[in-house]
Nucleic acid binder design. Structure first.
Lengths: 294, 294
DNA sequence: ATATTTCTCTGACTAAAGTCAGACATCGTG
DNA sequence: CACGATGTCTGACTTTAGTCAGAGAAATAT
């Protein structure tokens, strides 16, 4: 069966068998959406609560609708909203002690529901299901990652860049001298991949000396996401951008400590070349790929 | 990570990433539930349409609610309902030509959505996802199969019984003499497992001569469902019923052609014994299991 | 033939979800 | 400090969902 057929069949099974159960199980007197909201607020607690805007985006709700649900939860004494000290227009929602209790209850119910669903399975089946769902989870997440261009000084991009540097630093036995944030170069473009708003991959292109050559810079994939094909997807995306800009040759450099990256470049059809002009002084491996002129 | 944790995480991923997409994609002006209904009616077309009762069960809807949705579809000219010739109280719903078109459109959209979801994946990833979802589908279905007691003359039970006999017949090289429907024996209980209303497993118990012994009869698992652990689940269920009725010993017989069944009984702790009184004349293998008295 | 059960339908609701316009406060910028 | 942008809220809806009682027709049991 084709992937789409399997996906569609699974979707039917899933919504029918599990979606339905969920609603009847997690209601607890409240409408399901309100329960979900309570849950979501709780999920952001350690970072000091969520702003209304965050919640709206995460749950994809209308502003009026969300506001009303927040009032409902406040009336029940489960949530309190206070103005964000950093910006008084914003309001952050936080759970009250009673809210924590209610959320814990929800969590318990959810756990119980999951336990009930898998209860009829044998240990071996349960292990197979765990495996299958973990794989599916990773791949569905990977498939729905969003790539978008960001300015070089975008905070999420900066964050990704910092992690990239940290990792080289941590892996680099000889102590890597962080070169600090790069200045914006004309013609360079950076792309950020996010999942649930979290940066999961980053990379960019910049023109090289030769006008038909473009250099790929600062490719990074979040460590939790290695092996999900995100690296090659980002690479293909950047190659497409380079092609749009008329490049027929792509170069890039990397450091020997980034073994997975090197393997990926090999797989993606890059050839090892000598150090090229303009490469990073700390780089140890150099690649190029010549693409057919359009 | 535990199975429940993986299941819950997957559930979040799935509803957030795919559930949401689905609604925006498959609405097409109609409320989603109406679209689903249209789809479901179409799915039963080759068998001459679905009765209202069938639809109600499959979609788990209130009678009034469903009736109104059917009127909506009729008003749009997509569906027509006619009294069931076999039973004039029932009504069967069928798609009109326009309904077929609308359903096809839905189907296309659904296919397109699925294709879009998997588009960013590489071939290898797609294959992994297909695998994982097919496994998860089977296991989720298996986990949510419903077991219920049925009277010996329940039509679904009869159907299951017939398939059981057919299969022995087909496999039995020497030509099996079908013994016809068994008369209801006092104290016997039959259990039917259904998935989407389809019988997928069947079995029953009946008291043996010895009052502390109960015999398990007519265990059958749908061929599509072998290997999903349904057989052992049914077996455990019947054993529990037998225990409730005070049995401390369970016997059963089967035919050598049903190899998987024999393997299952071995795995489930049954010992091979000699032919016992009251066993089926065509049976070739006999088992017993002594359970601790309560 | 009468009573009972089964099946679908309508009426009359309540609850939840989702929309849209605009009020009001606050922030950043020139 | 005026001005546009941003962020949240309320009011005033419309649409879907979901419930429940009971009417009326047809089948089945007594």
């Amino acid at each position: 069966m084709s992937t789409t057929a399997v996906l569609r069949r699974f979707n039917r099974t899933y919504t029918q068998r599990i979606g339905v159960l969920e609603e009847s199980f997690l209601g607890l007197g409240r409408p399901l959406a309100v329960s979900r909201l309570l849950f979501e607020i709780g999920a952001t607690e350690q970072s000091g609560g969520a702003t209304v805007r965050d919640l709206r985006e995460r749950l994809d709700l209308d502003s009026g609708h969300l506001s009303r649900m927040l009032r409902t939860l406040e009336r029940e004494g489960l949530v309190e909203t206070i103005p964000d000290p950093a910006d008084q227009r914003r309001r952050v929602a936080r759970l009250t002690p009673a809210g924590h209790t209610a959320r814990q209850e929800l969590d318990d119910r959810s756990e119980e529901l999951a336990a009930r669903i898998v209860a009829p399975l044998t240990d071996r089946q349960r292990a197979r299901l765990t495996d299958a769902l973990a794989t599916a989870d990773l791949l569905v997440r990977a498939a729905t990652v969003r790539l978008r261009e960001v300015p070089p000084d975008d905070p999420a991009g900066r964050d990704a860049l910092q992690r990239y540097l940290d990792e080289i630093d941590a892996r680099f036995a000889h102590g890597y001298v962080t070169s600090g944030p790069v200045a914006t170069e004309p013609g360079s473009t950076y792309v950020l991949a996010t999942s649930d708003g979290e940066p999961v991959a980053y990379g960019g292109i910049r023109p090289a000396a030769d006008p038909t050559t473009i250099e790929i810079k600062r490719m990074w994939v979040h460590s939790d996401w290695r092996g999900a094909g995100l690296g090659s997807r980002m690479l293909r995306h950047l190659e497409a951008l380079a092609a749009e800009r008329g490049a027929t040759r792509i170069v890039l450099d990397t450091n020997e400590v980034l073994e997975e990256a090197i393997a990926m470049y090999d797989r993606a059809g890059y050839c090892r070349v000598d150090r090229y002009a303009g490469s990073d002084p700390h780089a140890t491996h150099f690649f190029e790929k010549v693409t057919a002129p359009r």
